[in-house]
Simulated scan of single mutants.
Amino acid sequence: MIALIQRVSHAAVQVEERCVGEIGPGLLALIGVQRDDDASHARRILDKLLAYRVFPDEAQRMNRSLSDTGDGLLLVSQFTLAADTKKGTRPSFTPAAPPEEARELFDHLCDLARTAHPTVETGEFGADMQVSLVNDGPVTFWLEV
């Protein structure tokens, strides 16, 4: 499972001109599900999302996590993160989980997140989404488990 995370001051997801998820300060996590991922991968990526230290402390060092700040978490499925881009100029999506498996694992991740963190919003799996964000820093990390 892959998470491309961005520390944001604001992020929102729209589907057909309606807002389906929105947070103020926190993390936007674009989630890619790969073929061999299972529930243990969802648990491990959530643990990383909540514990990864990307927020500044009093000395402006990245020493605080989402769990420390209590800020928002916006989870958005993005199968293109699982693309193989090593050869040529067209991505191969062979590494990506089939849609029904990916949906099940993404939903599982969202359920886990909602029980572990107070503010969790999501995009809409499989929808054509417009994601807007204000990247704070900018701070962006690629996490993989």
Rank of each mutant, 00 (worst) to 15 (best):
T140A: 09
C110I: 08
L112Q: 01
R61V: 08
N135R: 11
A83N: 10
I45W: 03
G72P: 02
Q34K: 13
L28N: 01
E100K: 15
Q14T: 14
L81G: 00
V13E: 11
A82K: 00
M1L: 09
R90L: 12
T115Y: 04
R114T: 00
R103N: 07
D71C: 09
T80H: 10
A3N: 06
Q130I: 15
Q14M: 08
I23V: 14
H10I: 03
I2F: 13
G24P: 02
T89S: 15
I23L: 12
G126A: 06
M62S: 13
E101H: 12
E124K: 15
A102V: 02
S77W: 12
T94M: 09
Q34M: 05
L46D: 02
S40P: 01
D57A: 06
A127Y: 01
P98L: 11
K87A: 14
S40R: 14
N135V: 06
V20L: 08
G72A: 04
V139S: 06
S77G: 11
E101M: 11
S65C: 10
H108W: 10
A113I: 00
R18A: 08
G70F: 13
S92P: 02
A42P: 00
S77M: 06
N63Q: 14
G70H: 12
T119D: 11
V120N: 05
L28H: 02
V8W: 08
V131K: 08
M62T: 07
F106Q: 01
T80K: 13
L143D: 05
F93S: 07
H41C: 07
N63M: 09
A83W: 10
D111S: 13
V54R: 09
L49W: 06
V15T: 10
L66C: 09
S77V: 09
L109K: 00
R64N: 05
T115G: 14
V76K: 14
P98C: 05
H10L: 05
T89P: 09
H10R: 15
E17K: 15
F141M: 11
V134W: 13
H41Q: 09
F55P: 03
T140D: 03
D107I: 01
C19N: 10
K86A: 15
S132K: 11
L73K: 04
